[in-house]
Design a protein around this nucleic acid. Sequence first.
DNA 1: AATCAAACTTTACATATGTAAAAAAAAACG
DNA 2: CGTTTTTTTTTACATATGTAAAGTTTGATT
Lengths: 188, 188
Amino acid sequence: MNEFIEALRIIYPLSDTSIDILLSHAEVISMKKGELVITEHQGGNYAYFIIKGLARGYVIQNGKDSTLWFASIGMTLLSMNAYLFTREGYENIELLEDAELLRIPVAMLNHLFETNLELCNWGRRMADHIIHRMELHFMRRNFMSASQRYHFFVTDEPELLQKVPLRHIASYLGVSQVSLSRIRAGIQ
Amino acid sequence: MNEFIEALRIIYPLSDTSIDILLSHAEVISMKKGELVITEHQGGNYAYFIIKGLARGYVIQNGKDSTLWFASIGMTLLSMNAYLFTREGYENIELLEDAELLRIPVAMLNHLFETNLELCNWGRRMADHIIHRMELHFMRRNFMSASQRYHFFVTDEPELLQKVPLRHIASYLGVSQVSLSRIRAGIQ
DNA sequence: AATCAAACTTTACATATGTAAAAAAAAACG
DNA sequence: CGTTTTTTTTTACATATGTAAAGTTTGATT
């Protein structure tokens, strides 16, 4: 739990008081590897913070499972579409390891953001970080060859390479698993 | 100016007081079509809001100019990398029309966010909107054919189709201008 | 240890989209 | 308005990456 709180504070420094307020409206839940935290059809009512474990967000496109991101300790899991526009989401969030999550109703989280300056700034900085991560991912996905994307991933995320099945890494990198195999074999 | 303030309030309702505070630290500047508001090498010290006009963000990748986004009234222009990490940015922002911009030092904007709850929530919601827009763009770019992307663009952004040279639209959609021509000719 | 299932790799072939270069059309300018 | 420049389209050809299907390896389970 301390490690988790430190992870929150990396985004934006929060006082003990603000942490307590946040925790007082949340509950810790345990979930197993393979379980879905949020699906496209339900899960929009809560936001989750990862205390321990690993998750991936994905969408189903043309019948294919496509990974959008991976998230670990301190990251927020929520259905962005549901959160922003109170409508059905489009992404699924699956646990890749047994996990402990902090669960808080989205309406309450929004209320805290609207009333507590520190928490609001935390939320703002978290959003900024997500934007930055998305920009990087977008640029790599669109301006680099499949092979370059893979080699960057190997350098940047060595732990994920160990923990995550290659098919998820392939879809995250935006290549077929066949291409990823070719790249790993050094054919290109 | 009223239209601009209304555009700000679509993101998050701001009181007259908060608007006044924001305006009191900002200045209105005029710039001409073709001018660069921000480049990869400089421009990180100010954030800009579009009062009037049209802009595009782009990067140079492998010697090619690639459009990341278009922005009009009420949108914020800033060097995200510079803003987040006080380091050099990577994107350029160019005006596609003569424009009026509201310019405010990034340090001041951050200070306002950190001290004013309403403005902080505005900043947070603005970031959320950017995330949503990026998600959509990412999914279209990566899960749709070039042709589908173009047809969505035609439907969603008919004004941009009129105002913006096709080569920028091509790079925004992530296709070569040759492919875009083929698509428009109905060859695929 | 034998069996079954899941994960990963390899092969063979198909194709959407890219690059380069020239032609045509449209816009800008004196 | 005729000339130059910019923008857009067309043509011809190249290639990175995808799909489908068959192997191979690895890991789980009894």
